[in-house]
């Protein structure tokens, strides 16, 4: 899985999600599952036991439904899940800033899930199953995870890997540009993906309308949100109490 590419200087991948654009269509959720070989729901699965690497919460604010897509925040400072894993199945790749999960090494103790303040991690409560024949449509670039392991969003690591290989084949070095599935899928272009080492992209995250969830915990999340509406921001950051529906 995540390995440092010593040849390339580091990237610092991050995401900006525009809450004023998202309308909760679910494209990102489906595209994410498709890209990352996440199995269809087990007949008994619920939102609490489901395998969604990217969850979309629905809130009501400013007189409308506000949707909050939540991938893994790829915490860069004192990454809560990484430090607790007893057998190094979670790695923060210094070359990308991506928090990777190594399913082949995961014990399934779920300590990382308890540690994650965003509840971005999901557990394989069941054996993954596809309807007969549908395994032909799995993505060759992403391995299938077993029952009893934890998994989560890795900013479409398979795509990053493919991009790095393509760049290397063309003789390129250094960080590559690529797009995760959710960002490619979004019909409203609400998800912008980029490298914080790119000053133009970094500037977007520094705007006054940009913010991060649970910033005060000091875990350095690399998913930023933005909204021009103070009511929406208040609902999402907890400055005002709204009714959740997710």
């Amino acid at each position: 899985m995540t390995r440092t590419d010593k040849a390339s200087p580091a990237a610092h991948y991050a995401m900006i999600i525009d809450l004023d654009r998202c309308e909760g269509c679910g494209d990102c959720v489906v595209a994410c599952a498709l890209e990352n070989n996440v199995p269809p729901p087990n007949p008994k699965a619920t939102p609490r036991t489901g395998l969604n690497w990217l969850r979309v919460f629905r809130l009501e604010a400013a007189g409308r439904d506000v949707f909050l897509p939540m991938p893994c925040m790829q915490c860069g400072e004192e990454t809560p899940c990484q430090s607790v894993c007893p057998q190094k199945a979670v790695e923060l790749d210094p070359a990308t800033g991506i928090v990777g999960q190594i399913p082949e090494r995961c014990l399934g103790c779920r300590y990382c899930m308890a540690a994650c303040p965003y509840q971005a991690r999901v557990f394989n409560w069941w054996d993954p199953q596809w309807p007969a024949g549908m395994e032909q449509t799995l993505n060759p670039n992403v391995s299938v995870r077993q029952r009893g392991t934890v998994e989560k969003c890795n900013f479409c690591h398979g795509r990053w890997h493919a991009a790095i290989e393509k760049a290397a084949a063309a003789g390129g070095r250094g960080p590559v540009a690529y797009t995760p599935a959710c960002s490619e899928a979004c019909p409203a272009q609400a998800i912008t993906f980029g490298d914080l080492n790119n000053s133009e992209f970094a500037a977007l995250t520094n705007k006054p309308e940009s913010f991060r969830l649970l910033d005060s915990l000091g875990t350095g999340p690399k998913v930023f949100y933005k909204t021009a509406s103070t009511a929406v921001r208040a609902a999402v950051t907890g400055a005002a109490k709204d009714t959740p529906h997710a």
């Binding site: 679910g26 959720v29 996440v38 269809p40 729901p41 699965a45 939102p47 629905r58 997710a246």
Partner: peptide, 15 residues
Amino acid sequence: TSPLLGKLWQESALR
């Protein structure tokens, strides 16, 4: 269309 779409209503409450 696909069993995977259950992600939207069975494993979340988007639909």
